[in-house]
Write a protein that binds this DNA or RNA. Structure first.
Lengths: 344, 344
DNA sequence: GGGAAGCATGGTACCGATACCAAGGCAAGC
DNA sequence: GCTTGCCTTGGTATCGGTACCATGCTTCCC
């Protein structure tokens, strides 16, 4: 690069292409954006020039004029959790063919980072914003509400959506988990999820655990084994440690973990301790992660479809960006119970 | 949004801020970009106006003038593989505090997608480009070489780097794997990796398996059990299916899998078939994924540090973007053997 | 005391595209 | 024959910032 072998050649511009093709810059612009509005002959000449120069349009410049950047901001807690990675993939698959570029921001479950990341996104003037796990009362919400572009909250079904939402009720997931475990006839039932304090918080995991607690109450069960342990539920170690803590408190016969990732960690901890699953303890996870389908015994779980969340969000946005406004404000994709070996 | 309650208010511009603060737009620009060059008093007035209007600068407009976008393109095969997600996180952690915004492109291991994605990135005029898994002879390489910005290849140690590289030798990983398994005294040794045909290819996985084959030859071992199975090695199912095929061919006493993800899949397949690990078969993976540390038995593996690859790449880029040019062209971060329970 | 130097601020000309309007050419319609 | 209208193309004025240079003052020092 900086070796002086080549002068710091600037990328060719539309003007360069237009000169080579013997047309005006406007005609080049049209050729690329609306080929049908240019004569066949001219189009061929322009495209030849584009090819020869290796011209790639500068969308930043175009955006300034057209007032559409083609960016869609996507803000998630982490990409290490495969569910968010899948959602990002689904969203991208729908949006990219239409010329939109996802702009991914990661908050690390931190409420403070949320605002920083959002500001960075806003400075790029996205045409739409997709967020997951936003704190219900943060300043970031104000920024979103004032952004002046479509906003879609995903992976949740908020009481009061900022604009649109695509997801499911984490609270109801928790209630279903409680009903399910109660129905298995277990004497002692536990729920393991993230802590509810501090600046780093997994709000959706908390919601599932809250629903679980209420579900236990509805079933007339004790909720003294609902434990909040560690930060976000997205790490294997979380499940292992939470299970260790549960054992120290006397153990349980059936356990709900707010994520398959934790559930797998718990399963492994059971194996290390010689606790048999499902004979000694039944495990129920959440998310239907690939790992839960592969491990032995396979994890029972409450399944959602991360890729579908991404795709539906993408489809919703395409409609909105094309000027439509009739789409429903909240799309609830629901969830379903998958009983496999870990619950017996 | 489109409910008509508010006129489609445009985001405030620097001009709006300057009027409210009673200064020129240039002074606003300076206040935000180089606060030290503005008097204390003026700065306070400007910042107050910024705050009151909720002004967020339009970096797209700024980029056009300054010819620096603040984007760093990152092209990876997938984000579902946690190693790439970790690398992305490490890179982001280093670059974001300095005002750079990663622009993530995902190719799905497809050679054709590679070029499409790269063009989309180039149209955003990134200040630097980071790529992983680029095909050695694709047209995308030409585009990269002509991009006129620093290019860093990661997760590999290419023979002829396009510009810079941060990674390790996948080939040597494979050789080490072969030496290691040969040293365990196993009679039949197998290696399982991705196919080498078609448009969707995992080039780094192929490299590891190539090194493994050569390593077997050096150790005087037969290589008839080096199997190419399925597409990319990044899925649990890949390992399970590959192991099933291996068993159909007579099995082996020691098996190298080119990814911990596959290795875990293979481990689970062994459990389903009642094959004991490590007593009946020893397993060696690659990558030191979290899952290999958590599962039972824990996976022996050849470890690299994905987060570190991201951070070192970020640090290298910051140096280059600040005008430095003295950094080494290739940074080899190496790898290390971690023998845990799965090799006995 | 006068010139050099430094600080804070402003004016102007772009960066590279697109929106919008105008204009020339030609065929169709009355 | 002349108007009407479509098709194709070009000219001009931005979009919202920053680079660069100029300006008016104050301060410093020989």
């Amino acid at each position: 690069m900086a070796d002086g072998s080549t002068p710091p050649r600037r990328a060719p511009t539309m003007r360069d292409v237009s000169r080579l093709a013997g047309v005006s810059p406007m005609t080049v612009s049209r050729t690329l954006a609306a080929p049908a509005r240019v004569s066949q002959e001219t189009r061929a000449r322009v495209l030849a020039a584009v090819d020869r120069l290796g011209y790639v349009p500068d969308r930043g410049a175009g955006s300034l004029s057209s007032r559409r950047t083609g960016f869609v901001a996507l803000i998630v807690p982490t990409l290490t959790n495969p569910n968010f990675a899948d959602t990002a993939a689904g969203l991208t698959a729908v949006l990219r063919p239409r010329g939109y570029q996802p702009l991914i921001g990661v908050t690390g479950y931190s409420v403070a980072e949320e605002e920083t990341v959002l500001r960075a996104m806003l400075s790029r003037r996205p045409d739409a914003i997709v967020v997951s796990g936003m704190h219900r009362s943060s300043r970031a919400r104000d920024l979103l509400a004032r952004a002046g572009v479509p906003v879609v909250e995903i992976w949740d079904r908020p009481e009061a959506p900022i604009d649109r939402a695509v997801g499911f009720s984490n609270y109801e997931v928790g209630r279903l988990a409680a009903r399910t475990l109660a129905g298995l006839g277990a004497a002692r039932i536990a729920g393991l999820g993230p802590e509810r304090i501090g600046e780093v918080r997994d709000f959706r995991g908390e919601e599932r655990l809250r629903g679980f607690r209420d579900g236990l109450a509805e079933a007339g069960r004790a909720d003294d084994l609902v434990l909040h342990h560690g930060r976000a539920a997205g790490a294997f170690a979380h499940g292992a440690e939470a299970l260790a803590e549960l054992v120290a408190r006397g153990g349980a016969e059936a356990v709900f973990l707010v994520s398959d990732i934790s559930a797998f960690g718990a399963l492994m901890e059971c194996q290390r301790r010689g606790i048999r699953v499902p004979q000694d303890v039944r495990l129920l996870g959440f998310g239907d992660f690939e790992i839960g389908r592969q491990c032995v015994p396979r994890l029972s779980t409450i399944a959602v479809d991360p890729d579908e969340i991404g795709r539906r969000t993408g489809a919703l946005l395409l409609g909105l960006l094309d000027g439509g406004a009739g789409e429903p404000a909240v799309i609830d994709l629901g969830f379903r119970l998958l009983l496999r070996e870990s619950t017996g």
